[in-house]
Nucleic acid binder design. Structure first.
Lengths: 111, 111
DNA sequence: TGTTCATACGTAGGTAAGCTACACGTAGGA
DNA sequence: TCCTACGTGTAGCTTACCTACGTATGAACA
């Protein structure tokens, strides 16, 4: 997977895995990997700054917890984040439709 | 359309509109706009450098022509470009499947 | 004891693709 | 004359993501 392709879709992915339940950063990375069937290996240097940005703009909230002697910062969606996720989803639908229509235009003309 | 979302997909779009027939830069921009139903307004500062890059790496060839007193540089796909387009198409399919599966994971669990 | 791995968070700095804003020029209509 | 459409092109900026690193705990194992 060309990493550049993820540009502009990272927020949607993060919000999406947090929709079901709150998760900490490391678990988010694992969830992305699992949901994508192993295709998405998002490095920590991408995820942690992105989560902080989403918190800063109000789409996520976080709290520290200690589990098994390890400290975790658990993120959860805010109401604003849920709205944002809806927007991201419709933006993705539009985006994939547009790109798909351009890429398939030729084969469509042939068929 | 968030411009960042196009990252990593520009080459695929350009190769795709050139698949049917050779076009010059300005016509490529119009073709993208038309095929996308008006959603894609790619600026010249994106298209011209990208076309030159694709020519430099051998996926396109170009020649100058004068039409109605105006000079145009017309680009056409090379064999290498056609192969690249196939690769870009399958990469797009994989990418959109992966992102789609992550974004729809929640609603899939619900249904 | 120490070494290694999984877990867990974080940042400084680099990369690169696309965009902004411009320059240059022709043709044609108001 | 001015404006718009047509047409190509570049210098420099932005910025989202990545690389490479630092820090730390716990568990397994030799």
């Amino acid at each position: 997977m060309n990493p550049d392709a993820l540009r502009g879709h990272m927020d949607a992915l993060l919000l999406s895995v947090l929709e079901e339940k709150p998760l900490h950063g490391y678990a988010i990375i694992e969830a992305l990997q699992e949901r994508s069937g192993g295709a998405l290996s998002v490095p920590t240097g991408t995820v942690y700054p992105a989560l902080r940005k989403l918190e800063r703009i109000g789409h996520l909230s976080s709290e520290w917890a200690t589990v098994g002697g390890r400290k975790r910062r658990t993120y959860r969606l805010t109401d604003s984040g849920r709205k944002q996720l809806q927007g991201e989803r419709s933006a993705w639908r539009e985006f994939s439709t547009v790109i798909g229509s351009v890429l398939r235009a030729e084969s469509a003309a042939v068929s």
